[in-house]
Simulated scan of single mutants.
Amino acid sequence: MERDKNNNDGMEKIKNTDHYKAQYQKDFVDKWDELIDWEGRAEGEGAFFINLLKNKGKNKILDLATGTGYHSVTLMSAGFEVHSADGSTEMLHKAWENGRKRNLVLRTIQADWRWLTRDIKERYDAVICLGNSFTHLFAEPDRRKALAEFYAVLKSDGILIIDQRNYDNMLETGYSSKHKYYYAGDRVKAEPVHISDDLVIFEYCFPDQSSYKLNMYPLRKDYCCGLLRGAGFQKITTYGDFQKDYGIKQTDFFIHVAEKQ
């Protein structure tokens, strides 16, 4: 019984919104671009976000999960004004370095989504939260609080773009992936080692035999859309793997575009 209690206590500890900060260690962050593969990601998503933002007339962008800076750098290079935020100082440092390598200076902001307006006073045409990052929030009050903060930093006609893995498929039929989009590095193995209704643990294994784990809450698609409506967003359009027409079972990622007005 004592062993079961210790196991349960350990599981509850890792099902904590703030636990991600301990998981993004410097040596993991230094390998992150090897996992992402910027060229592979660019090939997979193409100009989807650039075209979407331009078509909607959005220019000032807040990248809320900048990670090592791929989307911030891509959008800045396309002419957008971008502010780059993340909860991990290690990620922000790496993003800034990646920007400098490309002759760009990122404006970085260390911020907790749940108290975003404490650190960010400006208003944006669009907020993006990509890379399956929103699933680091494990408690529903945290999810609702974060979305309320996202809503608050948007202009009156602003939009939120948020993505997630296809957890519906993962929970119902098991894990599968085309490895074409977000984790495109062909020398890195990325797959779940635990799947349950309230926790998915992904393990990332690198060629040097190192491995790292990240904990995620398995957001179902309709539940996520319900949260967006509850935060006040009026229109939500969902894409599957960057396509408006998609098959639920064949989709790796959902991208939700939530419009404030």
Score class of each variant (00 low, 15 high):
residue 2 E to A: 10
residue 3 R to L: 13
residue 5 K to T: 07
residue 5 K to Y: 09
residue 5 K to I: 10
residue 6 N to Y: 13
residue 8 N to M: 03
residue 9 D to W: 12
residue 9 D to Q: 04
residue 10 G to E: 14
residue 12 E to D: 12
residue 17 T to N: 08
residue 18 D to Q: 15
residue 19 H to A: 15
residue 19 H to N: 14
residue 21 K to P: 01
residue 21 K to C: 15
residue 24 Y to I: 13
residue 26 K to I: 15
residue 33 D to Y: 13
residue 35 L to E: 07
residue 38 W to H: 13
residue 40 G to H: 09
residue 42 A to M: 08
residue 43 E to L: 04
residue 44 G to D: 09
residue 47 A to M: 12
residue 49 F to R: 01
residue 49 F to I: 05
residue 56 K to R: 15
residue 58 K to V: 12
residue 60 K to M: 01
residue 66 T to G: 00
residue 73 V to P: 00
residue 73 V to R: 01
residue 74 T to N: 01
residue 78 A to H: 06
residue 81 E to T: 00
residue 81 E to R: 00
residue 87 G to S: 15
residue 88 S to H: 14
residue 88 S to M: 11
residue 88 S to R: 01
residue 89 T to K: 02
residue 90 E to S: 13
residue 92 L to T: 05
residue 97 E to T: 12
residue 97 E to D: 09
residue 98 N to Y: 07
residue 98 N to S: 08
residue 98 N to A: 11
residue 99 G to P: 00
residue 100 R to C: 03
residue 102 R to M: 10
residue 105 V to T: 09
residue 110 Q to C: 09
residue 111 A to D: 04
residue 113 W to E: 11
residue 115 W to E: 14
residue 116 L to Y: 06
residue 123 R to G: 06
residue 124 Y to C: 07
residue 130 L to E: 02
residue 135 T to M: 12
residue 140 E to K: 14
residue 144 R to A: 03
residue 145 K to C: 08
residue 149 E to N: 08
residue 152 A to D: 14
residue 152 A to R: 15
residue 155 K to A: 14
residue 160 L to E: 07
residue 161 I to R: 01
residue 162 I to T: 04
residue 163 D to S: 09
residue 164 Q to I: 08
residue 167 Y to P: 03
residue 169 N to S: 14
residue 170 M to F: 06
residue 170 M to D: 08
residue 172 E to H: 03
residue 180 K to F: 02
residue 181 Y to W: 05
residue 182 Y to Q: 10
residue 185 G to I: 13
residue 186 D to Q: 13
residue 188 V to N: 08
residue 190 A to Q: 13
residue 191 E to C: 08
residue 191 E to W: 02
residue 192 P to C: 06
residue 194 H to Q: 09
residue 194 H to M: 04
residue 195 I to H: 07
residue 198 D to T: 04
residue 199 L to A: 01
residue 200 V to I: 02
residue 201 I to K: 01
residue 202 F to D: 01
residue 208 D to S: 10
residue 209 Q to D: 15
residue 209 Q to F: 11
residue 214 L to W: 02
residue 217 Y to M: 04
residue 218 P to W: 03
residue 219 L to C: 03
residue 221 K to Q: 07
residue 222 D to S: 02
residue 225 C to K: 02
residue 231 A to V: 03
residue 234 Q to V: 10
residue 243 Q to G: 15
residue 244 K to T: 09
residue 249 K to S: 15
residue 254 F to Q: 03
residue 258 A to D: 01
residue 259 E to S: 03
